[in-house]
Simulated scan of single mutants.
Amino acid sequence: MKLISWNVNGLRAAVKKGFNEYFDLMNADIFCIQESKLQAGQIEMDHGDRYHQYWNYAVKKGYSGTAIFTKVKPLSVYYGIEENVEEEGRMITLEFQNFYLVNVYTPNAKRDLTRLPYRLEWENRFRHYVQQLDQLKPVIICGDLNVAHLDIDVKNAKSNHGNSGFTTEERGKMTELLNAGFMDTFRYFYPDTTDVYSWWSYMSKVRERNIGWRIDYFLASERLAPYLIDASIDHQIMGSDHCPIMLEINDFPELPAHHAVQS
């Protein structure tokens, strides 16, 4: 299977910058996007003959939103974390025969950190949610998690300490999530690789100089490690302030519940 995730920062804008061409070229089995910034009916994606489409729109216009395109029809679809409601359209869960896929756009703490308390509370609910799924079958989580976990995940770690997306609290929540039975698939393959990022500021020359952050992830249940082929970042792909990330994984059998497996 080939899975791709991309924060497109406005799908209508990304389409004008080559999104459809990249989508067709990659021919992914599952393609997830974040920050669609759409309402229902505002765009028609010409992939219906090959993909099932699932959209979670934010109530607020031009804000947030997620979508999944999948060649295989899921067994079930769930929007949000609780009560099937998430006003900001930040999450979609698809259940397949052998795993769950969770596409997520984690809330930003904001530059002045005014939304940090909400962000941390959301992180706790999200971790509890995916742990519950993991008790049933393996989980693959993808999306813009709005945090650079390690010092090597941001260009200028020392000067960025305490900034939104690189606070001790946010990084700690990522650590808690990984300690709950999940792995960062990119770091699984490339534990020491530096200067590989998935987001760059729109400030002049920042992307050209590769002053970036790695805040987009594929996380996976630890027991999927034997089936992973590669995790990569298409940093050369433009069209957004983020670039696409990819996970390649071999087909795997239905696995026992998390508590019955040693990672």
Score class of each variant (00 low, 15 high):
N124E: 15
N146Y: 05
P256M: 09
Y100G: 01
D216I: 03
G65N: 09
N210W: 03
S240N: 04
V206F: 11
L3F: 14
M1Q: 11
D251V: 10
V104D: 05
W6K: 07
L133Q: 10
S204D: 15
R209G: 01
L11R: 04
W6V: 03
K205S: 01
R223C: 13
Y54K: 05
E121L: 01
W122P: 01
G62L: 04
I141Q: 09
E35A: 06
S159N: 13
G239N: 09
I211R: 12
E169P: 09
L116A: 00
D192V: 15
N7D: 11
C142L: 04
G65I: 05
G18Y: 03
G143L: 02
G10F: 08
Q53G: 12
R171Q: 07
G165F: 05
I152M: 15
I33W: 03
A180W: 07
N210I: 08
K137N: 08
D234F: 14
S198E: 10
K60P: 13
V147S: 00
E248P: 02
E21G: 06
L38K: 08
R12I: 09
Y51A: 00
K71D: 10
T70D: 03
L116D: 07
A40N: 14
H242C: 07
V15E: 10
H47K: 11
T93P: 05
N179C: 04
S198I: 05
E123T: 01
T167S: 05
L133N: 04
S198R: 07
R90T: 02
L133A: 03
F69Y: 05
